[in-house]
C-alpha cells in the first residue's frame, strides 16, 4: 500500500513539471515581459525607462532561460524561469505584481473559502444522495418522472441566476441574510448560510440525476433480486444493500474535489463578497495580476493531483475487488 502511494506521488512530479512549463510558456513566451509592462502602464506615453523600471521592480528584467552574464550556477538560477517557475515547487509564490506576498495572502484567504465550500460539499452530498434515493425508491412513478424533469430544468438554469435570484429573494425582499460580506469567527454563519443553500440548490439538477442512475443500476443487479426473494423488506434493502454499493461510485467521484475545496468558488465568493481564494483569483484576473494567476494555477494543479491520489486510495479502501498493481 505504502509503495503504491509513493509511486503515485512520484508520478505527480512530471505532471507538475508539465503544468509549470505550460504556464511558463503562456505567461512569458507568448508575450514578453515588455508587452506585459506596456499593458500595465497603459498603451500611450510609455517610455522605455518606465518599462525597464516596471520590470526591475517585479524581477522580470532577467533573461528567460539562460543568463550568460552571471557566473557559475547563477547562470541558471538568475533567470525568470528559475525565479518565477521553479520556485513554485517549494511553494514559494513570491510577491504579486502589486507587491504583496502571495503566500501570506493565500494562507489568510483559504479559511473563508473553506468555510463556504466545506459545508456546501457535505450538505450537498447528503441532499443529493437522499434525493436520488427517494427517486430510485419510487422509480417509474409520477414522483420519479417529475423529479427527473425537475432535475433537467434545474440543470438548464445558469448558475448565475441562482445566485442573483437567491440574493434578491432572501436578502433584499425577505431581509433574512445580509446581501454580502464576511466576518471571521462564529459570527460568519450569517454570511455562510445563503451561499451554501444556493450552492446546494444549484448543484441538485446534475448531481441528483447522475446519482439516481447509480442507484437504479444497483437496483437492477442480481444480489438485490436475491435479497428481495429472501424476503428483505424494500426499505431495508434500499438502505442496507443498495445504498452501500451505490456509494462506491458516488464517493470515489467526489473524493477528487475534496482538496480543491480550499480554492473556493470564483463566482460565489465574488457575488457574496467573501474574502476567500476564489475572489482573490477573480480580482487578480480583473487587475491582470499575472503573478497571482500563475500561483493559483500551480496551487490548483497540486490540489487536483492530490485529489486524484486520494481517489485511487479510496477506491482500494471501499472496493476490495480492486487490487493495487
Amino acid at each position: 500500500m505504502l509503495a503504491y502511494v509513493v509511486r503515485r506521488a512520484l508520478y505527480a512530479i512530471p505532471i507538475l513539471v508539465g503544468v509549470n512549463l505550460i504556464t511558463f510558456f503562456l505567461f512569458f513566451v507568448v508575450n514578453t515581459p515588455d508587452d506585459m509592462a506596456r499593458m500595465h502602464l497603459g498603451m500611450k506615453r510609455v517610455t522605455p525607462d518606465a518599462i525597464e523600471k516596471w520590470k526591475a521592480e517585479r524581477g522580470y528584467d532577467r533573461p528567460l532561460l539562460y543568463n550568460a552574464q552571471a557566473d557559475g550556477s547563477d547562470r541558471l538560477t538568475a533567470t525568470i524561469f528559475f525565479d518565477k517557475s521553479v520556485r513554485l515547487f517549494g511553494f514559494d509564490f513570491g510577491s504579486s505584481d502589486a507587491g504583496r506576498n502571495i503566500g501570506a495572502d493565500i494562507k489568510q484567504r483559504m479559511w473563508p473559502s473553506l468555510a463556504i465550500a466545506l459545508p456546501q460539499f457535505l450538505v450537498g452530498l447528503l441532499v443529493y444522495v437522499s434525493f436520488a434515493m427517494l427517486l430510485a425508491f419510487f422509480r417509474g412513478s409520477y414522483l420519479d418522472v417529475s423529479g427527473v424533469v425537475l432535475c433537467v430544468v434545474l440543470m438548464s438554469i445558469s448558475g448565475l441566476f441562482y445566485i442573483i435570484a437567491g440574493q434578491y429573494v432572501f436578502s433584499k425582499l425577505l431581509h433574512l441574510f445580509p446581501v454580502s460580506g464576511y466576518e471571521p469567527g462564529w459570527l460568519a454563519w450569517r454570511f455562510i448560510l445563503l451561499p451554501v443553500v444556493i450552492g446546494v440548490i444549484a448543484g441538485l439538477g446534475s448531481s441528483g440525476r447522475v446519482y439516481r442512475t447509480f442507484f437504479l443500476e444497483e437496483i437492477g443487479k442480481d444480489y438485490v433480486r436475491t435479497a428481495r426473494a429472501k424476503g428483505v423488506p424494500e426499505t431495508r434493502l434500499l438502505f442496507r444493500h443498495v445504498l452501500k454499493n451505490a456509494m462506491v461510485p458516488i464517493l470515489t467521484g467526489v473524493v477528487v474535489v475534496i482538496p480543491t475545496l480550499f480554492m473556493g468558488s470564483l463566482i460565489m465568493e465574488s457575488f457574496f463578497g467573501i474574502p476567500g481564494l476564489g475572489s482573490y483569483t477573480i480580482e487578480a484576473i480583473q487587475n491582470q495580476d499575472f503573478a497571482i494567476v500563475r500561483a493559483m494555477v500551480f496551487l490548483g494543479s497540486v490540489l487536483y493531483i492530490l485529489g486524484l491520489l486520494l481517489t485511487d486510495i479510496s477506491y482500494t479502501l471501499v472496493d476490495p475487488r480492486i487490487r493495487l498493481s
Binding site: I15, V19, I22, T23, L26, F27, V30, N31, T260, M263, L266, T281, I285, Q288, F290, V293, R294, M296, V297, G300, S301, Y304, I305, L308
Partner: peptide
Amino acid sequence: SIPGVLLIAAAVLM
C-alpha cells in the same frame, strides 16, 4: 490537472 477556469483565464489574459 490545471483548473479549467484558471487555464482559460490565463490563456485569455495572454
